[in-house]
Design a protein around this nucleic acid. Structure first.
Lengths: 161, 161
DNA sequence: TCGGCTTGGTTGCATGAAGCAACTCTGGTC
DNA sequence: GACCAGAGTTGCTTCATGCAACCAAGCCGA
């Protein structure tokens, strides 16, 4: 997009979209939630151009949605983790996931299911456990293969660090 | 964005973003929810380029998120309404709204508040009425001016048609 | 009847973001 | 010494976006 801000719009949805509304940004947050923390993992799992991935990671770190931590010196190598701010995007992602499932379903059913770590219940559109009724956050949930799963899913299933 | 699809990604979030992840799309859905139904109203309330608005409306109609209805013949004039599919984006918009409120707050407080039509209770991040506890949809909620409201808000407050 | 106004677009052009491939840089391995 | 891996960066091309001007069909007022 030419400019990523929405001048003249001062509501909170526009502000949110200025930060995470760019192409790829939300998918990067999502892939980190799935446990892909390294540049190469993300690049492979998303099929994104490397320069664009580099620019998005930079911006997401600047916006304090991701945090970059070195896991080795010499040569320096980094991993990216979600901050609280990043983890708090989980409800929005769940809402989009469910909307996508409802209106563009795969014939075999969803590839991934989000379940409550504690009781194994499925997670509703609003991020509520359908089994125990609790209001969940990113830390309470994990993904498991759904009926439409094809390949082994990338990396782990951990949402938080 | 160069291309709006995400080839190789077959999960539901990516599918949802292919449809409503383009710049402006979600803001157009939002402004229609706020009661701006006509081309000129949307153009003014969003400050979007007219050709881009035209292209986005076309696509949103194609995707059956909006429905175009003539309100007069000669010359033909149209209004745009949300379909069920469009109304079902409400939980995602509420999640983004709350995320934006939390992390980029206006000093005076939110400009708009979303309240439950029936009991007047405020609507939580997950689209649940904080007063009566009901799980709400777009039709159950309306927006009212918040503490940070400045100008009279565009058009009405109706969410549905 | 003539020009101007309103609504809802479409067209043409300039700019900049996304995609792709090649390159860099640092260290480890054979 | 040659080669490989990880994490980017650089250069080039292409397409989407923003802007402004234009079009079209009816209505309005003088």
């Amino acid at each position: 997009m030419l400019r990523r801000d929405y001048p003249g719009l001062d509501d909170s949805v526009a502000k949110a979209l200025e930060v995470i509304g760019e192409r790829w940004s939300l998918l990067i947050v999502r892939t980190v939630m799935h446990g892909n923390r390294r540049f190469g993992e993300m690049q492979e799992s998303l099929g994104i151009a490397r320069n664009v991935l580099s620019a998005r990671l930079q911006r997401l770190v600047d916006e304090e949605i991701l945090e970059r931590r070195a896991y080795q010196e010499n040569p320096p190598r980094y991993e990216y983790f979600l901050t609280e701010k990043g983890l708090d995007l989980w409800p929005a992602l769940i809402a989009l996931l469910n909307w996508g499932d409802r209106y563009s379903p795969s014939p075999e059913g969803p590839r991934r299911l989000i379940v409550h770590k504690e009781c194994g219940g499925t997670v509703s559109e609003r991020g509520i456990c359908e089994s125990c009724g609790k209001l969940l956050t990113a830390r309470d949930a994990k993904q498991v293969p759904g009926p439409g799963a094809r390949q082994p899913m990338g990396a782990g299933t951990a949402a938080a660090d």
